[in-house]
Design a protein around this nucleic acid. Structure first.
Lengths: 195, 195
DNA sequence: CCACCACTATACCGAACGGTGTGGTTATGC
DNA sequence: GCATAACCACACCGTTCGGTATAGTGGTGG
């Protein structure tokens, strides 16, 4: 995973890294709009000036937060998929990866979905970051569907993505603790019918 | 559908109804946290005093917004389901209802999911409103699964709910225009395997 | 007639928001 | 030896936030 960078595309200074870590935690747990830059600065042991010197704006910090989190997530899923050989098990590994991910991270659902909810402006670059993550996962599913030799790889990829996203919402909003297992199970049945 | 009510559980005054309509539109399109009471008052042609006299607080207005929207949604789904006779078609009618709903309402996803993203406090009554909606839909699916004579109605209901929620996210965040059709299709295949 | 209700208009509150400017300290590297 | 980068502390900007207070208007029902 390439290290995160700021506006001038230079590696993060130590203080900037602390800011990004703190912002990631606060934005996710309390919401982007309800967390002020003053709080981020205080929690990171940094002045607001430093944040604005390194990131330029709150919007840019939000985007950096989403990109960094996305990078972590992609690595997490990639590692889980790469640990398996069988095409079916590689696909199902994404659901296991999600289960473990949501076990350690808290019960606040998908950061990208939450960001889209908070960033109403359709041109906000944070929305593009969220879309990119979903597009990436769909692309992974598309590759895996091709590996499997699915009759309609695109349809299968879309369906898997929908099950994946639905599981996250089912768990966090509908408060179904077994949502991810249920989605995995449905995916397994669809794959059995496919192959 | 019972008319919405405010804190003293009395029917809404004309101005209060206007406030609720305007708030519903603004909260959904621009987000709850980014819309101030001053803007709601202005758009409704009402003073802030009137809003606070009728609703008591922003939190209460938010809850009234979510409850009213939920009531509309439940009626919409109920009507669609009631129009069909065959158990399978009754289930699939919920996806058709969703497709029509999201066609008229804009591309901002599920108001309940968005509200959960914005209301970080787990004890915020708005979160309970969101959970109640999902619980209701799951209950409907459970009834329909029983009608169908499914082998495992609970599992089927959970799976349908997951497909349903995943479709909304797939369409709004991942920007897959065919997400709802894909989810409906997956549901149809699972139902065929079930029955 | 008068009390009551719904409502308008306006001014105000303390707090927090995102963002900027000044000035000073420390550490690294040429 | 000296510039530069990275950081600190702190004061300040205008704006907006949720919420309150005051004063007054029009209509309805007892």
């Amino acid at each position: 995973m390439a290290p995160a960078r700021t506006r001038a595309d230079r590696p993060l200074t130590p203080a900037a890294q602390r800011v990004l870590d703190v912002a990631g935690d606060l934005f996710y747990r309390r919401g982007i709009n309800t967390v002020g830059m003053e709080l981020v600065a205080e929690q990171a042991g940094v002045t607001k000036k430093t944040i604005y010197d390194r990131f330029g704006s709150k919007e840019a910090l939000v985007v950096a937060y989403l990109r960094a989190r996305d990078a972590r997530w992609r690595q997490w899923v990639t590692d889980a998929v790469d640990a398996e050989d069988d095409p079916v098990r590689r696909i199902l590994a994404t659901f296991d990866a999600l289960a473990e991910w949501t076990d350690r991270e808290n019960e606040r659902g998908c950061a990208m979905v939450n960001a889209c909810a908070e960033l109403a402006d359709p041109d906000h670059p944070g929305r593009a970051a969220a879309r990119d993550q979903k597009e990436w996962l769909r692309g992974r599913y598309l590759e895996l569907a091709a590996e499997l030799g699915a009759a309609d790889p695109a349809r299968l990829a879309d369906t898997l993505l929908i099950l994946h996203e639905g599981a996250v919402v089912g768990r966090s909003v509908a408060e179904l603790p077994g949502a991810i297992a249920t989605a995995r199970d449905a995916a397994a049945r669809l794959l059995a019918a496919e192959g």
